[in-house]
Design a protein around this nucleic acid. Structure first.
Lengths: 114, 114
DNA sequence: TTCATATATAAGCATTGACTTATATAAACG
DNA sequence: CGTTTATATAAGTCAATGCTTATATATGAA
């Protein structure tokens, strides 16, 4: 991992965004598996507009990137963001969210494209 | 550094607290040099009540600890906090704040006890 | 005990933030 | 085309937040 130095201002902005349980969970979920909005709505059990608004904040900050696949908009961590390494390290201190993805797959609600 | 796993909730609470430029700077300042309130007021150029209120939030969360020395109340990072390792890693991604302490010393405003 | 200094706390206010409901947009498909 | 599905955005509401000013507390010194 390369150690990019961020300013205090940049760092606090990133931490403020991740200082919300919903957004932190989203980032943990898409860390290594991109997800579409409806999957996040399902996993987090929140309204679609609420999830979309959280994703917008993350996207406006450049923390996540989006890619359309037909009906669905998939979100992934933006590995080119200056804070990507910081974010990865933060996630290392948290339980892996991958079980939630597995549970989604097992419930047949995972969106698979192509 | 030991890798303590925190819950998503605990992590987001810590990040929310550090997601404020003033508090993040405070934590960076006292990382390896304990500081009293008036020094933080001087360095951060903010009102005393404002600094005290930020310190209270950090203390209520257990992130910092306080120690009275005569008139002065000194604050330091609480190394026993479950998120201490996480916080240390976050600070590694930021510019070191020690120059501000040095400038304070050079201006003769550093508080020295004993 | 009285005063000065350092800090904490309380109350008030303006701003931000996260949700809600309602509506707009955009793609796929009949 | 019109309809359905997925997502985005807008507007409104209410709670949380960070500051201010004013005041309380605590320590040390005269």
């Amino acid at each position: 991992m390369n150690q990019t130095l961020l300013s205090v201002e940049e760092t606090s902005k990133v931490l403020k965004l991740l200082g919300d349980q919903t957004r932190l969970t989203i980032v943990g979920l898409i860390k290594d598996t991109e997800c579409c909005v409806c999957e996040l709505v399902e996993i987090l059990d929140m309204s679609q507009p609420s999830i979309s608004q959280h994703l917008r904040k993350l996207r406006d900050a450049g923390i996540v990137k989006e890619k359309r696949k037909g009906h669905w908009m998939f979100y992934a961590l933006n590995e080119d963001h200056a804070a990507f390494d910081l974010i990865s390290r933060i996630l290392e201190h948290m339980p892996d969210q991958k079980e939630k993805i597995i549970a989604l797959e097992q419930s047949g609600k995972r969106i698979v494209c192509e």
